[in-house]
Each structure stands twice: as structure tokens, then as C-alpha cells.
Amino acid sequence: MGEANPGGAVDHAAARDIRPAPVKLEVNGTSHTFAVEPRTTLLEALREGLGLTGTKKGCDRGECGACTVHVDGRRVLSCMTLAAMQEGKQITTIEGLEQDGELHPVQEAFIEHDGFQCGFCTSGQVMSGVAVIDEAKAGWPSAATADVRKPFTVAGLSNTEIRERMSGNLCRCACYPNIVAAVAEAAEKG
């Protein structure tokens, strides 16, 4: 390193180049290549670049969960993610959850349980709900798990567990009890 390579790791063509550059994103199964500025967030790229406005901007600081999407199958906050860092990643947004015109079971459960009022937080809630069930199936504990030393199974996904695991998604309309009921039912159904 060092002396042998005075240029270091910084690609000096890239350093201080703030202009838009192409990035390839796989969004809801379709590949899109388009130019983004380095400072463009994934949230802005989805909404303004691709017109996928189902993902919402609430706080833009990682504090509300409205912008939740899945990247390579994991829930993340698109407002705290740079689009330029998602090259080749598989991104799923609320628009990509339905399959062949059928809503995802978590979407169905939100309708069934009236899990929203104004709907602003709902896409983020649903994306989190889907992931919460996957994480519980994978045996992940949470802060509500009585003893993290013991194995966790999806059978332990109580309402208290769901509340804790969904706490990264705020709802200004306070639909929390119905959101918890929706996630619980979707988890039970499979």
C-alpha cells in the first residue's frame, strides 16, 4: 500500500466528481439503469427517478419508517440509503408486493383489520410487517424477547413482540392496535 501505491483507493476520476452517474437497480423484478447524483437517496430515486410514489418521505432522517423498502430481502430505510450504493441490488417496494393481481397476505390483513386511516404510513408499515414475519421465521429475537439466550420461533410472535418489532414505523393516525392485529393474523396464516 502506501508508497507503492500513492494513489490509494480513491478513484481520482471519481473523487470530487459530483455529477450524475448511471446506476443499475433491480426494482420489483425489473432492471432500470439511470443516472443519479451521488447524493440522491434511494427514496428520491424511486419516487422521482422511477415514479414509484408508493414509498413515502416522512422525516427523511430515519425516524419514522414511512420510506421502508426491502433491499436483497431485508427491510431498510430508503431515505438513509444512497441510490449510488445500490448497484445490482434487488429492491422491492410496496408496488412490487402483489403477485399476478393478488395482494400480499399482509396487505389483505391490513384491509381486513382496518390498519390505516390517512394511509401515509401504510406502505412502510406493510413492508415492515412482511419483514417482521420473515425475521421471526428466521428465529431473530427482539427487545421484547424474555430471554435472548433461548431460541426464538415464529410461534412466539405475540402482540408484544409485534409491537416492539414494528416500533420503527410511526403512525400519526395511531392505528397501532389494528396494525398489530393485521401483522398477527398474517403471521398466523403462514
Binding site: 500500500m1 502506501g2 501505491n5 500513492p6 490509494g8 483507493a9 480513491v10 478513484d11 471519481a14 473523487a15 470530487r16 466528481d17 459530483i18 447524483e37 451521488p38 447524493r39 444512497l82 449510488a84 450504493m85
Partner: peptide, 19 residues
């Protein structure tokens, strides 16, 4: 505005950070 690049080697990342 800022620029961005991807590091592929820890030693080179450290060298870049140093300079």
C-alpha cells in the same frame, strides 16, 4: 454535493483515508 467511490481493499482504503 459530494463524490463517491467503492473501496475494494482495506489497505488501500486506509491509504486513501490518510491522504
Amino acid at each position: 454535493p459530494f463524490s463517491i467511490s467503492v473501496a475494494d481493499d482495506p489497505g488501500r482504503a486506509v491509504a486513501a483515508h490518510a491522504q
